[in-house]
Each structure stands twice: as structure tokens, then as C-alpha cells.
Nucleic acid binder design. Structure first.
Lengths: 190, 190
DNA sequence: GGCCGATGTTAGTGATCGTTAACCTCGGTG
DNA sequence: CACCGAGGTTAACGATCACTAACATCGGCC
């Protein structure tokens, strides 16, 4: 029963769809566009997803789960809060630089996800944010949690902006830059 | 020939359209939606704009011009580079907090603007960025301009993310927070 | 070797889209 | 007071949309 290429097509579609959604927005991409991007034409997509919205939902659930799981692991295996923050930043930066389309779709298209899935995505996102807030709270115990949460969201904006200014700097240099800026921003007194 | 309400409808449409575009994306909003949002229905819009894309173009041109002009003035009337940077940050933050929908549309929908206007918007944006880079270059003379440009783009991502985490903090507190984070991020060595 | 499920195809469905056409109203103005 | 332009209306057009139906292909399994 094991098919060595099982899910290959599905993943291929998701990957192509991420690029298209990031470039033109969910409503700016048609089913035929999606099919054309993977070599099949049009409605072949319905063999893999029940519909366009379900495809987006699968995509956002996957990203959210990966981010949340990765964040949890990195914090758990860090030797201290300062190291945990560094690990979180490096993980998020690697993700943003490695999969810019996914990051873009992730914080733009949540409203187009149908309801039950949207709640799950939001819960995962909230969990990820709280991972960051928990670490920050140890480093800045005097700052109220609401402020820390806002600071984390702003930092995500900083890190996630890289897709829009991509290619101007080599990846390693960009990683350094974002790490320095993110650390400084998060630890700044305000 | 002076009409005391001239342009009122036009501005009303642009304002409502900014909210809708920010919430659902350019392709997710129909002409009928836009009409309904200002009390008229549907095609009345064509009395004020030649089409949907032209409406978006007018909107983005307006924002870009305001940002660029405001930035130029603030830098020109600052007493030094450190004060200029502070003025730029405060101006951008006030804009992002005051018109979150416009800021959102501004960095998401450029690709939907028809070509001649898109070039004009891009030129205005580039001018605005260079205003920031010029100030930063005085404060960090050892850092290559390409890095400064990337840092400025990342900072815009930080400042522009506020629409997505709005309402969690009072405006004055949010201004303080963003100012501190933005300053720290821009002046961080990397 | 006949069947079958997985994965395509093309043609067509009704809904919705941006846009145009044709017509109405009405507050100035010559 | 006739007129006219500004700003609305509804109806309709063709294009495109997400999705469905009906049919084709084919590798693996009894």
C-alpha cells in the first residue's frame, strides 16, 4: 500500500500555489492558473483538494504547525532565555529567507481560510507568539505582557518584510542584519 | 466655479476603498462593494474614476506623495541627523497608526497598479527610502548603503505591522514602543 | 486478462466580475 | 424658462470565475 510518490503532487501544488498567492493574492489566482503552474490544466486540482479555499487552508495549517513546532523545540533545547531568544530569531529568519512565499501568504491570507480551519491556524499562531513572549518575559520582567506581545508582532513584521526587499543582499549577510536588528528591537527599553 | 464640496465624494470613495482593499485585497472587493460602502450602488463610481485600477492608482499615488513629501520636510527642518531620524520615525509611526488601511494597501497592492502609474509610485517610494538612507549614512558611515537600504526596508516592515496587531495597546504607548524598537533596530551594529 | 482506483482530460454550469449603455433628476445659469 | 452638466439609476454585455459531469488512460492486483 505504500506509494513512494504519495503526496508528491499535493506538495507540488501547494508549493506552486504559495508562489502565486504571494505574488497576486488569493483572489488574484484562478484554478486554471494553479493547474497550469504544475503542468496539468485546471480542474485536475480537485483530485487533490476539495476546493480552492481548502487548498489555502492546508497551506496555512502546514506553515503554522511548522513554525509552532520549531519554536517549541528551539526554546526547549536552549540553555537559557538569551539563547532561546537567539534560537527563535535564527529559526524565524531561516524560515523567512528560505520560504518567502509561504511567509507572505501566512500573514496576508488568513481571512480567506474557511472558519473551522481559521480557528486552528489562529490557535497555532497564538501559541507561537506566546513562546516568544514567554522567553521575553524572562529577559524583561518589568515589561507588561501586552507590551511584549506587541513587540513580538512588530518584530515579526520586521523579519517577514524580507520577501519584499529580497535579493539585495546575500543570504548570510541578511541573516546577520536581521538577527542584529531583531535582537536590538526586542531588548530595547520603551 | 468654486464648489465647496468639490472632491468630497472622490475622497469618500478613496477612504472606503482603502478599508475594503486592506481587509479583503484588491481582487476581493467588487465595484458593487465599493458603491455600497459609500451609499450609492455600483457603477456610480465611474463618474469619479475611469475604472477600478485607476482608483487604486490614485490611492497609492496619494499615499506615496504624502509620505515622500512629509519625509523631505521633516529631514530638511531637523537640526541634525539624530533629530532627523527621530522625526522620520515619528512621522511614519503617526501615519501607520493614523491610517492603517492606507499603509496596508500601500505595501501590498502595488502590483495591481497599471504600468505608467506604477512607475511613478515606485519612484516616490524610492525617494522616500533614500531620504532615510541619507540620514542613516551620516549616523553609520562605516555601513555600506546596500545594508542601510535593507535595514530601512526591514524597519518599514516593523512599523507597518501595527495594523495587524492593532487595538492591543493605547496609541501613545504604541508610538513609544515603535519609536524605541525602530531606533534600536536602525542603530544596531550588524 | 479483466477490473479498479488514481489521476487526468474537455465541456459545460450558474454566478459574479468590470464595464458600458440608456435613461432620470435636478440645481444652477444665460 | 429652457437648458445643461454633474451625478445618480437600472439593465445588460461579454469575460471569467469556481466547480461539476462525463469520459479517458493506465499501473497494479486477483
Amino acid at each position: 500500500m505504500v506509494n513512494r510518490t504519495a503526496g508528491t503532487r499535493r506538495a507540488e501544488i501547494l508549493h506552486a500555489a504559495a508562489d502565486l498567492f504571494a505574488a497576486r493574492g488569493f483572489h488574484g489566482v484562478s484554478i486554471d492558473d494553479l493547474g497550469r503552474a504544475v503542468g496539468t490544466s485546471g480542474p485536475a486540482l480537485y483530485r487533490h483538494f476539495p476546493g480552492k479555499e481548502a487548498l489555502l487552508a492546508a497551506m496555512l495549517l502546514d506553515i503554522s504547525e511548522r513554525l509552532a513546532a520549531d519554536g517549541r523545540e528551539r526554546v526547549a533545547s536552549a540553555s537559557g532565555p538569551r539563547e532561546a531568544l537567539d534560537a527563535l530569531l535564527r529559526g524565524h529568519i531561516a524560515f523567512a529567507l528560505g520560504e518567502p512565499a509561504l511567509i507572505t501568504v501566512h500573514d496576508r491570507e488568513l481571512d480567506n481560510v474557511p472558519h473551522p480551519d481559521r480557528r486552528r491556524v489562529r490557535r497555532l499562531q497564538r501559541g507561537y507568539v506566546e513562546e516568544w513572549v514567554g522567553v521575553l518575559a524572562l529577559l524583561r520582567p518589568a515589561t507588561p505582557p501586552a507590551v511584549l506581545r506587541a513587540a513580538v508582532h512588530a518584530t515579526f513584521g520586521l523579519l517577514n518584510s524580507t520577501p519584499h526587499s529580497a535579493g539585495e543582499l546575500p543570504e548570510e549577510r541578511m541573516t546577520e542584519l536581521l538577527l542584529g536588528m531583531g535582537t536590538a528591537a526586542l531588548l530595547a527599553e520603551a
